[in-house]
Amino acid sequence: MSRILEINIFRYNPEDPASVPRMQTYYLEETPNLNLFIALNRLKEEQDPSLMFDFCCRAAICGACAMVINGKPQLACKTKTKDFPNQINLMPLPGFKLIGDLCVDTGSWFRIMNEKLEAWVHTNKEFDPEAEEERMENSLAEQIYELDRCIECGCCIAACATAQMRSGFLGAVALNRIARFILDPRDKRSEQQYFEIIGTDQGIFGCMGLLACEDICPKNIPLQDQLGYLRKKMGVLAVKNYLFWKKRS
């Protein structure tokens, strides 16, 4: 006999004056291989077309479907119901603006983040269409790719108590992004320039080492190691600045 799932979903539509924040319960018969992508769409099509949630690639590569599933921020599309008890609670990601029900505005958040970080390659060189590409070690390319794999799902922000307490905090995703550019020899920014962006209480020194980000990241980005690396690097730089400044004066 297949189970009947009890799915409790946070409901609130800010555009509907009659709507109040509440939890609503739905029942659904479990089928083999059922995941939350299929389950939620069935609920929408068969029971309640007003349900709001986000899916896009439905293959765990675009990051659209992050939500809090029984307390843990996760990608709904790759969450199988069979790994859960009969009762499944779904909440929108905390830390982002609510659009409705399970939808949050990650787009604006990440755009602002990338603008703040100036998360692009900075260089003085002009592109020469005639020239051969600059060489790079394959191992370095793979290292950069490893950090580039982040899908901006927002789970690490939703999981981080620091980010929840202090809204200005950049979070693991941003710090990892900076680590990616530090690694990249094509980005000609100096250490000082990176320091300017992340050497603050909103940046690396705001992180309290809670490691929920590391434990929750659905792409297993090596966040802990990047955070440690950055703090060490920025700390050493600050000490160097101090000594340098001493010498000069």
Partner: peptide, 10 residues
């Protein structure tokens, strides 16, 4: 969707 979630990413 946010630009980076476009299906090119797949």
């Amino acid at each position: 969707v946010p630009a980076r979630r476009s299906h090119s990413s797949a």
